[in-house]
């Protein structure tokens, strides 16, 4: 039956085909860097992180205290000019123990695994989490629902970045 033919093409190359040099290849990478405007809300967020504080915005309509802060409530679709500090502690909503780096290379034998987590920040609306990493904790001791607190870089080392918080540790 002619209509049985449904698959064509897709010529697989082996690693050896590549390394032997028989297959013509060219390499390239994008020659462009980016400097993103932080805008109002994220700018203030970063400035406050530099001071060792976490700031959120509050929607006057739905009353959500939103993190990361934004100038508008995406649900009510109104401007949100009210700024409000939240705590630097929270609850682990979920976490992972990650054995590969961002580029998919395996972590070294002596390296500790990355411990990413979603942390619901105290003082923000329920469920409002941010992604960050955990520290000062053995991976097997991490539990969903665990309370954690931010460990800040020394003031002199902060640059106005999410990494001004080194990690969150159990408390």
């Amino acid at each position: 039956m002619e209509d049985k033919i449904k698959v064509a093409g897709g010529t697989g190359l082996s690693a050896q085909d590549i390394s032997s040099g028989k297959i013509f290849l060219t390499e390239d990478s994008l020659d462009c860097t980016y400097a993103w405007d932080t805008g109002v809300a994220v700018n203030r967020y970063l400035e406050e992180l530099k001071k060792g504080k976490i700031i959120a915005t509050r929607c006057r309509k739905c009353k959500r205290i939103m993190l990361p802060p934004r100038l508008f409530c995406e649900l009510c679709f109104i401007p949100c000019p009210d700024w409000q500090y939240v705590q630097d502690s929270g609850i682990v909503n979920t976490y992972s123990i990650c054995y590969v780096h961002w580029d998919a290379s395996r972590i070294g034998k002596d390296e500790k695994p990355h411990l990413p987590a979603v942390i619901e920040i105290d003082g923000a609306a329920p469920g409002m989490g941010i992604m960050h990493i955990l520290g000062e904790v053995e991976p097997q001791e991490i539990k969903i629902g665990m309370r954690v607190k931010a460990v800040w870089k020394p003031e002199a080392e902060r640059s106005g970045s999410i990494t001004d918080i080194k990690y969150f540790k159990p408390c």
């Binding site: 698959v7 093409g9 897709g10 010529t11 697989g12 690693a15 297959i23």
Partner: peptide, 9 residues
Amino acid sequence: TKFVRRALE
């Protein structure tokens, strides 16, 4: 097409 790890095409 066939799904392959590395395609020539």
